[in-house]
Write a protein that binds this DNA or RNA. Structure first.
Length: 488
RNA sequence: GCGGGUGUAGCUUAAUGGUAAAGCUCCAGCCUUCCAAGCUGGUCAUGCGGGUUCGAUUCCCGCCACCCGCUCCA
């Protein structure tokens, strides 16, 4: 179906149609950063809305939040990011394979915990007799290079008195630290979820093709809190729900799959994880992750209880995270400040968390690529985007068949009326066939054409994008007709 | 970060050590009563910086960005 076979085709399509541009392009671009254009911003916004509708609006057991990107530094100490997001890496000069220095130093085969960057730098590793795991050469390493995977910034305009902060590397922690607030303010009862959509920042060592791995990106995350023991069931439930969401919005089944993570692939906090993957039709044809659904257990809430106990040390060291060890967990941590009291069971516990975490930018691109199609119509090539109506940037376009006889005024009025309900586009330029095709390229589901007959019987032609079929609809029934077809 | 490749108009391509060409798109107008028709006119380009040269888009160097592969992937 889709004739896109190279990433270049997608980049070109995105730019040509105003979906995605390179950031700061007139200055030569900025690596890994992209901007959404006029159609792209609508598409992405619709992806967000569809996610929010499915995960929050349509459910009784999920509420939303919108947290700040800047958070207390201890958040990232507690979550593990401050320590585990910093690595010292050396590269083999012979085979260019990069390896974490602590792995080399310990000659460790198995997974080891990350260590703090300052400690790693201070250790002054001697790599002269270490073996490259890539090619077996000995001592052919570059100087160790430190990598900080979180962006740093400072708060406070006075440089001498400012505080280093991180840009959040995930939205999830904002939800965990608001767990208590939501419990206290909304009468939710476990099982329930808290959802958030927002930007996150990760200083990736390597970015990847187009917008698949960027350093600034948008996440849609749900933290679904449940009683321990019910977590496996809820994990399966969300896995199915989230997979179906993509299908319901028009992703072709053959391009979507679920892939379970192997045990050694799991993050330090996760008990289980499955990825929703999309088969992008270019490059090596690799399946790319759109979303991960993880069982994060009670790790995060327990860590934040430790973080709360660490606050005094934080003040004592004047906020130097590297001088702080997270305080030990309380003996009765299950009754701690982030615990949940179950009224029916008269029991306190730390909830388990199921986390569906979706990449908004990645799925936006997947919807775009999956909708792209080319077909032959009367010997002419027709390019179109077969967006699901909920995702289409423009829902309907209104044309006068010709630019005279009062038809433009009638068409303009219809368009203005409909703008109250959805994105509606007016166009009177050139042949009507060309206007239809232009809307096909933008993925607009319906075109309405006002002609001479409209003045006689008040009907207009409704032309459907995918089939190109037309039917005449009375203008007074038009809004209802479209809202039913568009499901809005 | 390594290796390889690429960079000319919005897009696709052309050409050249000496005025950068075309098609499509786009814009204005004419004509047009249902699927990219036609006519007229118009806007828009050698990624950035340096070097060689009388003259560089072309040759050389550096930078930036993108693509492929390696690597990374919480």
């Amino acid at each position: 179906m889709a004739k896109i076979t190279k990433l270049d085709d997608i980049v070109s399509l995105c730019k040509r149609r105003g979906f995605i541009f390179q950031s700061s392009e007139i200055y030569g671009g900025l690596a890994s950063c992209y901007d959404y254009g006029p159609l792209g911003v609508e598409l992405k916004s619709n992806v967000r809305k569809a996610w929010w509708k499915s995960v929050v609006q349509m459910r009784d057991d999920v509420v939303g939040v919108d947290c700040s990107i800047l958070m207390h530094p201890l958040v990232w100490k507690a979550s593990g990011h401050a320590d585990k997001f910093a690595d010292l890496i050396a590269e083999c000069k012979k085979c260019n394979v990069r390896t974490r220095v602590d792995h080399l130093a310990e000659n460790a085969e198995e997974h080891t915990e990350h260590i703090s960057l300052d400690i790693a730098e201070a250790a002054e590793y001697d790599l002269s007799n270490k073996v490259c795991p890539g090619c077996g050469k000995i001592g052919q390493f570059t100087e160790p290079m430190p990598f900080k995977l979180m962006f740093e910034t400072q708060m406070g305009a006075n440089v001498d008195d400012s505080m280093m902060l991180y840009l959040r590397p995930e939205t999830a922690q904002g939800i965990f630290v608001n767990f208590r607030n939501v419990l206290d303010s909304t009468r939710v009862k476990i099982p329930f979820g808290i959802a958030q959509i927002g930007k996150s920042f990760r200083n990736e060592v390597t970015t990847k093709a187009f917008i698949f791995r960027t350093r600034e990106f948008e996440q849609a995350e749900l933290e679904f809190f449940c009683q321990p023991g019910t977590d496996d069931d809820w994990w399966h439930t969300w896995k199915d729900l989230r997979f179906q969401w993509y299908i319901d919005l028009g992703i072709k089944k053959e391009n979507l799959r679920l892939r379970d993570h192997a045990g050694d692939e799991l993050a330090h906090y996760a008990k289980a994880c499955v990825d929703v993957e999309y088969k992008f039709p270019f490059g090596s044809g690799d399946w790319q992750e759109l979303e991960g659904i993880a069982n994060r257990t009670d790790y995060d809430l327990r860590q934040h209880q430790r973080g709360m106990r660490t606050l005094n040390k934080w003040y004592e060291t004047k906020g130097d995270l590297t001088k702080i060890d997270l305080s030990d967990e309380a003996e009765d941590y299950e009754k701690g400040p982030l615990s949940y009291f179950d009224e029916e069971q008269k029991k306190r516990f730390i909830p388990y968390v199921i986390e569906p975490s979706a990449g908004i930018d990645r799925s936006t691109l997947a919807f775009l690529v999956d909708a792209y199609d080319e077909e032959e119509v009367k010997g002419q090539k027709r390019n179109l985007l077969r967006f699901h109506p909920a995702l289409a940037p423009i829902k309907a376009a209104v044309f006068p068949l010709v630019k005279k006889d009062g038809l433009p005024e009638i068409a303009q009025n219809i368009c203005n009326d409909f703008k109250k309900y959805f994105n509606c586009f007016y166009d009177q330029k050139g042949a009507v066939g060309r206007r239809y095709r232009r809307q096909d390229e933008a993925g607009t589901p319906y075109c309405l054409t006002v002609d001479g007959q409209t003045k006689e019987d008040g009907t207009v032609t409704v032309r459907e994008r995918d089939s190109m079929e037309q039917e005449r609809i009375s203008t007074d029934k038009l809004l209802g007709y479209l809202r039913e077809k568009l499901d809005i």
